[in-house]
Amino acid sequence: MAVYTSLDASDCEALLAHYDVGHYLRHVGIGAGIENTNYFLDTHQSRWVLTVFERLTAGQLPYYLELAEHLARQGLPVPAPQRTRAGELIVTLKGKPAALVQRVPGQDVLWPTADHCAQMGTVLARMHLAGRLFGHSQPNLRGLPWIATQLEPLAPHLPADLRQLLTTEIAAQQDFAVRCAALPAGPVHADLFRDNALFEAGRLSGIIDFYFAGNDTWLFDFCVTLNDWCIDQDSGLLDRDRARAFGSAYQFVRPFTDNEVPALALMARLAALRFWVSRLSDWYMPRAAALLTPKDPTHFERILRARQNSPLSLADLS
């Protein structure tokens, strides 16, 4: 949610001509995030989020948009994308694919409580189970194969100790990947951080930004979320109360299978590695944007080291 593509009122009016959602009132750029251009867009009838996709192609987008539409139809708190008068989910804006999605009420929670984490655990498990009925498949484009491709371009930027950490962890995860093939899997959000969930009056009102989604193990998605919602932000260590609230609520809806439990420790490391590498890439190889501040990669380095030094276990989650 950065601003790479600048839009004026006439651009927005041209876009809205494809929809039955009312007349243009205003739009404002959203500066958070790093991947796509996002605007809040208001019409006289309703409020929307307009996304212009900077990396994803029109051919890749149906998976993400149809997954969000599917989950919304399953009764989950996911804002549905709006179809055009012609029934399309994607339009072209300034030569790039774009989509219009319902704007849901609420705000993200910077410092979640155990109750917030429990709500997130319940909804995440429901999303995983609902995804079994989704008829499309697409790999997680930021999975381990992508992580491994970043080692060579990042190496010249890193001191020797970080190069060694990155190299050895990728090797450990490549060995671990063989065991992951049998883990329960399906469509996952893969980026369900605190800024991608909205709460209103203390209740979870929306899960947003599915544009890193893909088919992967449910346990990976669980650990991505855990590593953001249930930690001490300064040290990366687990907050036991929040971790147990999140883990217990998730397992009440979808209990872990016998082969998931021994995979917890390395999967939590993989989830930390994925975001450490993406933040390193954004830090050392940034893209130009009107509103963009790359996120500090040392945050996920700390989380990775914390998961290495204190391996995640079932006892941490129940």
Rank of each mutant, 00 (worst) to 15 (best):
W111V: 15
P112Y: 02
D282I: 10
N227P: 11
P187N: 03
Q138I: 10
G75F: 03
I207V: 15
I231M: 05
Q119E: 12
A249M: 11
P255I: 13
R307C: 11
I303V: 15
A268H: 00
L56G: 07
F40I: 14
V21E: 09
D20H: 12
A155Y: 10
A72W: 00
A288C: 08
W218C: 03
A197V: 15
L304F: 05
Q107W: 02
L133F: 05
D195Q: 02
D296R: 10
P79D: 00
L204F: 02
S235L: 02
S281G: 04
F246Y: 15
S281D: 15
P311S: 12
L89Q: 13
A315C: 11
E66G: 05
D108C: 06
E54T: 11
P112A: 13
Q164V: 09
P153Y: 09
G131D: 07
Y4D: 01
R305H: 00
F53H: 07
L65Y: 00
P159I: 11
L237H: 05
A2H: 01
H299G: 03
W111D: 15
V101L: 11
N309T: 13
F134A: 03
L25W: 02
V101W: 00
A213R: 02
G33Y: 08
P139T: 11
A271E: 09
L93F: 03
C180W: 02
S205Q: 02
P184N: 12
A265I: 12
G87L: 12
